Structure formats: structure tokens, C-alpha cells
Computed example of a mutant assay.
Amino acid sequence: MVQRNDTGMAQFILLGLSEELVLQPLIFGLFLSMFLISMFGNLLIILATISASHLHTPMYFLLSNLSFVDICFISTTTPKMLVNIQTQSKVISYEGCINQMHFFILFVELENLILTVMSYDCFIAICHPLHYTVIMSPILCGLMVLVSWMMSALNSLVQSLLVLRLYFCSVLEIPHFFCDLKEVLRLACSDTFLNNTVMYFAVGLFGAIPLTGVCYSYSRIVSSICRISSAEGKYKAFSTCASRLSVASLFYFIDLGLYLSSTGTHSSHSSAIASLMYIVVTPMLNRFMYSLRNKDIKRALRRFFGVAAMKGPFVLGLRNCW
């Protein structure tokens, strides 16, 4: 039995998606590609919102925060999995597992709350356009993001501290490519009633309440759009929140599917596949949704790369003069 006070000798085994050696290069290449696309796409959105003055609005402030959270979210689990595949090692230390679990909970809850704040921002923009600049002030936007960070950090800290009090059995195999809280609790030999109670309370608090707020906001938005008489007005109003609605729908659809599959069945493989969609695919698709559906982002990116291309020859010309 591995005890909590002897953490230096404790090691978990991440079984990953597949144990077939033939599939490992394919999985490595696929994950590496999605990881790089997600990182590059999110960085571009952050650079675009910073460099373009017309994007210094509450909507794009929240979008840049979401992109930053996506970068941190995918960086929590994917690099370790890529290293394990490359080195053909499935071991993660006790400390590494706790840290990975802590930051995974932090950033998944933070993304959930920021999506909720973005739905509120869209609700105010569509349903109360005349009061938008007054309600969605920079102070309120910054305060909502700060509160989201504080609530997520508190939840992840409580969950991690509760895991530290547990004793673990000798077989520490996790049928996942990362240290998922539910899978870690299943390996504990001591009583996990308190852990499970806090975990499901957090799921209700950070899952059901934000989801209710998102559904209410977008239902009011759709109702307001349907009451617009002109087709041009409907298109303009829908284009304002189409990207955010697509991202929120994708996030909650995969999130609900993951939790329903994990509670309805005990298939670890299906849960790992759902987690793959949740952790790697979603941050990558979010960037495509914003870059393809948002004209402001595309215009800012074209201007950013245009300025960068103009500065390159200019700097080279100055060097040649010297």
C-alpha cells in the first residue's frame, strides 16, 4: 500500500488511449498536430485582440481570456502524454499527477465560467443594446473574470487537498492519458465519501448553474432575434453572437456527453475518447469557429500579418544601408 506520507515512491501509470505499439506513432502525430494548431490559433487571437484597437471591447477582452485559458488547458495534459508516447513510458509521479489534476480542474472550471460570462455579454448586447456600454464596463468585465479565476482556483485547491489525505493501493493504473479526478479516487483504498460529495457538489455548482445561465441567455437572445422584422437586422444580430453560441454549444455538448457516458457506463476506453474530444479537439475547433465566422478577427489578423510583412523588408533595408 502506498501511503500519503511516502509520496516520493508513489507512481501512477497512465494507460493512455491504446496499448498497441503500431498505433503509437499515429496517436503521437495526431495529438502533436492538434496541440500545435490549438496553441498557434489561440496565440493569434490574443495577438489580434491586443494589436487591433477596434477589438478593445468587452467581447474581445473575454475572447482573449478564453484563448489564454485554452492554451493553459491543453498544455496541462497533452505535453505529458506526448512525452510518454515518445519515451514509451506511462509513468507519472505522485506529485505530477496531483499537479496535473489540480490545473486540469482549475482551467476546465475557468473556461466554463468565462463562457457563462460571454453569454451574459452577448445577452446584454442583443437584448439591451442601448445600455450595453454602461452595463458592460471595463471594471465589470475585469471583476467578472477575476471572480471566475478566484472561484476556479478555490475549487481546484479544495479538490487537490482532499486527494492528498487519501491512501492508495499498490496497483495505480489510470485508464486515461491524464490524471482524472474520478479515476484517481477509484484507486484510493481509504474512504472517499467526502471527496465524492465535494466533487459532485462542485459539478452541480460549476456545471448546472452556469449551464442554466447560458441556456437562459441564449434563449432570450434567440427570442429577441426572432422579433426583429427585417432580415438584415436578424442577420446582423445573429452574427454578433454566432461564434460564441457555437463555442458554448460545442463545449457543453461534449461536457455533458463526457459526464453522462462516465456515469451511465463504466467503459474507461469510451470515457478516454470523450476526454480526448473535450481536452484537445474543443480548444482547436474553437479557434476555427472564431476565425471563420468572425469578420473582425479575420480583418485584424490580415492587418497584423500585413504590418509584419511590411516591417520585414523595411528592417532589412535599414540593415543594408548600414
Rank of each mutant, 00 (worst) to 15 (best):
H266L: 10
F253N: 11
F253D: 12
H266E: 09
S223G: 01
L260T: 15
S224T: 03
S224M: 09
F253Q: 06
Y259R: 12
C226A: 08
P210H: 06
D255P: 01
I221Q: 08
S243I: 14
S268Q: 05
S223R: 11
F253H: 05
F251E: 04
S261C: 13
S219L: 15
S267Q: 02
I254D: 15
S243E: 06
F253M: 13
T240L: 14
P210M: 11
S246A: 12
I254N: 05
R244P: 06
M199F: 15
V198W: 08
L250C: 08
I225V: 08
K236L: 13
P210E: 12
G213A: 06
S217V: 00
G213N: 10
S217C: 13
S246K: 09
R244T: 14
C226R: 05
V198F: 14
S262C: 14
F238T: 11
T212V: 00
Y252F: 14
A202F: 07
A242E: 05
I254Q: 11
S224R: 09
A208M: 06
S219D: 11
I225A: 02
S239K: 08
S219Q: 08
G213V: 07
Y200E: 13
T240E: 01
F206L: 05
M199H: 12
S239F: 04
R244Y: 15
C215T: 02
S224N: 03
T263H: 10
T265F: 04
S270F: 02
L211D: 03
G207W: 01
S261A: 13
D255M: 10
S230D: 08
A208K: 10
S243W: 13
K236N: 09
R244S: 14
Y216H: 03
H269S: 06
H266S: 09
F251H: 02
S219K: 12
A242I: 15
Y218W: 04
S239D: 02
G264N: 00
S267R: 02
T265E: 01
I209Q: 07
T265G: 01
A208Y: 11
N196E: 11
S230F: 06
R227T: 05
A242C: 14
H269E: 14
R220S: 07
T197A: 14
G207C: 07
K236W: 05
T265K: 03
T197S: 14
R220D: 00
L260S: 11
S230M: 02
T197R: 13
L260C: 13
E232C: 09
S230Y: 07
G213K: 08
V247S: 01
S262M: 10
S268L: 00
S239C: 11
T263V: 01
L211H: 07
A231P: 00
F251L: 04
S223V: 03
S224A: 05
S243A: 10
L258Y: 08
F206I: 01
S267F: 04
Y218C: 02
S219H: 12
Y259W: 11
A202I: 03
I221D: 05
Y252H: 13
K236T: 10
A202R: 02
